[in-house]
Design a protein around this nucleic acid. Structure first.
Lengths: 361, 361
DNA sequence: CTGAAAGCGCTTACAG
DNA sequence: CTGAAAGCGCTTACAG
């Protein structure tokens, strides 16, 4: 008997029982004597039994895995990529009958916080009525979120948090950007580009997100450690217009703009172009979309750091499925996607580049 | 009948035939009347039949897919990663019973070209005697390679080329680095770092490889286009010692060393450290290993560009399996892996970063 | 030219 | 506590 190639049927034959009994032993099901269970487990161990995933999958066909996914809506380029990552992973796992149902919720304008929470919660309840096997959620910042996650968990419905985390909840794991580290990467790029000298304008429209706060902190920490001679001016006005041209700002006195806030990058560059200042200042941003690609191509953006939403979605679904199908526990309960540095010359412009980004097409 | 969820059994029932006949129709097998075949195909189309990959796989278990893989040996860190990518992909596809047999051949020293070719070829023949279903090969530069690839292809054994390509052969597709583009990326990094001014030492131990030649060309092209004021000195001595300190070289007259030749990067940096020159010059290299990681961490290397061997192996096996199992033709017959820019702050130092590099562990 | 059946490796409802 | 059997969706060797 070749090691590792043994099947449940083989074990049954060796143990002198039937396959049903073997199954009971392997899955710690009830209705089996301790003695037979031990005998069977010993045999399994001796012959290094590994369950055949595809036999199991075929048999599992009867109950397809329904996974509820609740994402944000804006910025759309970002969340579209996340949804795409989820669909690609689902397609890869289609052998296991994964069936993700993706819903979105808006966080932009026109509603009070309470109204958002209510909308979010009602969507969640509605999705759950369809008897989901698991959820992938982008959490909102409200105590109920923890309650609901814990409730689902108690009912045996695991929850994964995407992009934002609630460590105080019983989500089984989290996948998101390493925002602090991405700030450090931006600082190293900036410092290298300025040879450790000069003036930097650091801009964010939105510090309310803890992600942006952490990114700024990463940027500042790395600057203080490695480039103490660079002078940093923070601006966090609501619009790039105010930030770059409001008050008594002389934009040309800066050597570099670092735009912490991924959502306003292309807007910021467009403004510099319009004012005729774009050639006098280096621009470093976050995240990539088609506008940003154009700015990279024509040289008006030097670099962006991407912690791509696609990978977040892809790995969230994939690791969740491995958890559901193989009972494989992720190594950590908090994981991050890579910080990719994207310049004109290494941005991906065609699909001859093999890459998870394109595997689903 | 839900669209797309129809099975062969359903079709058989609808057509009033048995599943064996449906199978004959779907696979263009002989022994079926044109009329029944048409009827069955029409039904399949109408109900949007998609074969269930996992049913097929289970049934295919009887003939596991044996794939022969022939890689180089040196530099080991590189080919170990390629082999690892292949194993990870095989594990991911284990549902389909993929069984890669990986062999290596040396290209270093002590043999004539003819002897190498003979060794390579005998290994290939030996592997093929085990009735492989497909091959992944790192080609050697000899006409016989084309002959053998074409011979295998004619016998219905597809061949994929890895890292190097032979476009004149009938390999079904190629995956490798985009060496020309990686040279351009290095040039953009260098140019940015020097703000378009200064002197660069461009070093390669080995121009005989067409990969290094193309990389150099990419570097030069981008420099001429974007940073015409940077002065470039080429050195291609056999050792870094000769290149950096041989003749009348004053290494400190350079602002930056760009080391085209991925295999000598850590050696070069170690030499600069030993001579006390490392703080006076920026270093840009290619490929990453544990030594290079240390140099990145302590700041003696500014950046490396990685076209990781892992991905080459991973995608080669994966796309080959998709070809064998689903008959899925890759979009292009020549594909490249990404050029990743790696600085101290974004190099991956722990496995909390979700990444194909770590998916197999 | 077509049918009937076994088999891939597992899970699960049912019978005893 | 254990067994016997059906079934997941496909492929294939054999019978007619």
């Amino acid at each position: 008997m070749e090691k590792g190639k043994i099947t449940l049927n083989d074990i049954a034959r060796i143990a002198g029982v039937t396959i049903g009994t073997v199954d009971r032993a392997m899955h710690n099901r009830s209705g089996i004597s301790e003695k037979t269970r031990q005998k069977i487990l010993d045999i399994a161990k001796e012959y290094d039994y590994k369950p055949d995933i595809i036999g199991r999958s075929l048999s599992m066909k009867r109950k397809r895995l329904k996974i509820g996914v609740l994402l944000r809506r804006e910025p759309t380029f970002f969340w579209d990529h996340a949804a795409r990552g989820i669909r690609v992973a689902a397609k890869e796992m289609e052998a296991f009958g994964i069936n993700p149902q993706i819903e979105y919720f808006h966080m932009t304008s026109g509603f009070t916080d309470e109204e958002y929470i209510a909308m979010y919660r009602s969507t969640l309840i509605q999705m759950n009525e369809d008897h989901k096997n698991a959820f992938i959620l982008v959490p909102v910042n409200h105590p109920f979120l923890v309650e609901d996650v814990n409730f689902l968990n108690k009912k045996g419905i695991p929850v994964v948090t995407l992009n934002d985390d609630r460590e105080d909840s019983q989500r089984i794991f989290h996948i998101g950007p390493d925002t602090y580290q991405s700030g450090r990467v931006a600082a190293q790029l900036t410092g290298g580009l300025l040879s450790g000298q000069g003036r930097v304008l650091l801009y964010t429209a939105n510090y309310s997100s803890s992600g942006y706060f952490l990114r700024k902190k990463g940027f500042m920490d790395k600057m203080h450690e490695s480039y103490p001679d660079i002078h940093i001016t923070e601006r966090n006005q609501k619009t790039v217009l105010e930030a770059f041209y409001g008050g008594d700002v002389d934009i040309r006195s800066f050597d570099c703009i670092c735009n912490i806030d991924g959502a306003t990058v292309s807007e910021g560059v467009a403004l510099l172009k319009q004012k005729g200042d774009v050639d006098f200042i280096k621009y470093i941003g976050f995240e990539i979309n088609s506008d940003v690609k154009e700015h990279l191509a024509d040289g008006s953006i030097h670099a962006v750091i991407s912690q791509d939403a696609f990978s977040q979605g892809y790995f969230a679904l994939r690791m969740l499925c491995e958890y559901l199908v193989y009972a494989k526990q992720p190594k950590y309960d908090r994981m991050f996607v890579r910080c990719d540095i994207i310049l004109k010359e290494n941005m991906i412009i065609n699909d001859r580049i093999v890459n998870p980004y394109f595997m689903g097409d």
